[in-house]
Amino acid sequence: MLRPFASSRALFRSAGTIRNDYVLPSANPGLRHSFSTSVTLQKKQLPPRPKHPPESEIEESFLKGSGPGGQKINKTNSAVQIKHLPTGIVVKSQATRSRTQNRKIARDLLALKLDELANGPQSRAAVVSEVKKKRAASRAKKSRRKYRKLAESQDDEGSIAEEAEGGEDVEGGEWEEISADSVEEVKAETEEPQFLDRAKVQSTESSITKNK
């Protein structure tokens, strides 16, 4: 696991030296650790949050049950529904117990929708969803790469482990049956870069738990 912070630092450093292209040596020390693409993406300015439309264009209604209201009842429904009169867009918020908060949230949502209507792909909502999509894709790609690498190294490890254990009863080099201890031994023998190693230990643990 990557839990101890100090060791994950070391991991990042080694990663940095491998991807030399991303590190600007001594020119800007602040950028030294910016090795992931998502960080640079975020640095690019998102379009600002769109402003609320003027109150004169909004028709607001509070959803309430029938009945006398006031002290006689005690409703917890604080839903707010607003309609933008020029476009007819209707937005509802019942996210919080606070009516004041729901009014703000509904106006935020309406502003985003109007921005999307006016600016299309350049609108904040579109850009944000684009960034999120890219991030998800990059995450998926990273994890694919990681597991492919693991699968490859598993085959290697399997054979090495077999040798290390003196050909003990390890059926077809089945990774799952090797204890974490044996992996540590393997690590000592094969001098691999540290970060790969850690990934392996992690995968062992997860696969062991999977086995259970």
Binding site: F62, G69, G70, Q71, N74, K75, S78, T96, R97, S98, R99, T100, Q101
Partner: peptide, 21 residues
């Protein structure tokens, strides 16, 4: 919640209503 404030409520004291807000 009452406006931007948070009002504590306990049995024995009336709960603030949205109309009052």
């Amino acid at each position: 919640p009452f406006g931007d404030l948070e009002i504590k409520c306990r049995p024995g004291v009336l709960i603030p209503r949205p109309e009052t807000e």
